[in-house]
Amino acid sequence: MSDTATPSHSSDAARSRSPLAGLKVLELGQLIAGPFAGKTLGDFGAEVIKVEPPGTGDPLRQWRLLHDGTSVWWQVQSRNKKSVALDLRTEQGRADVRRLAAECDVLIENFKPGTMEKWGLGFDDLARDNPGLIMLRISGYGQTGPYRDLPGFAVVAEAMGGMRHLMGEPGRAPVRAGVSLGDTLAALHGVIGVLLALQARARTGRGQVVDVALFEAVFNCMESLLPEYSAFGAVREPAGSALPGIAPSNAYRCADGQVVIGGNGDSIYRRLMSAIGRADLAEAPDLASNAGRVARVDEIDAAITQWTVQRPVDAVVAALQAVQVPVGRIYTVRDIAADPHYRARQMIERIVTADGLALEVPGVVPKLGDTPGGLFRPAPRLGEHDGEGWTR
Rank of each mutant, 00 (worst) to 15 (best):
L188Q: 13
V48I: 07
Y147F: 08
L60D: 05
V364T: 13
G142V: 10
A231D: 03
R201H: 06
K39N: 12
S274I: 12
D386E: 09
I49S: 02
I268E: 13
V325H: 05
G45H: 05
L100V: 11
N250H: 15
D211E: 11
A5G: 10
A242D: 13
E349R: 14
L26F: 06
V191G: 03
G257Q: 12
D314W: 05
A200L: 10
T353S: 07
W63D: 02
I49P: 00
V191P: 01
I49N: 03
L281C: 09
P35M: 14
R201L: 11
A242L: 07
S241F: 14
R293E: 12
A282G: 06
R206K: 04
G356F: 01
D87L: 08
T308K: 11
G257I: 12
L86W: 07
D355S: 06
D301S: 09
M273P: 03
F219P: 00
D280E: 09
R334A: 14
G193S: 08
A173S: 07
R99M: 13
L195E: 10
H67I: 14
F219E: 00
A322P: 01
R329T: 15
D87C: 06
S78A: 15
A157H: 02
N250W: 12
F111T: 07
F232A: 01
D125E: 15
I192D: 02
A279G: 14
P59I: 14
N290L: 12
P326I: 13
G161C: 09
H385C: 10
G374E: 09
V218Y: 09
E237W: 01
I49E: 12
P238R: 15
Q310P: 01
G182P: 01
Q199N: 04
A197G: 07
Q199E: 15
R278P: 02
G55A: 11
E349T: 07
S8D: 09
Q143R: 06
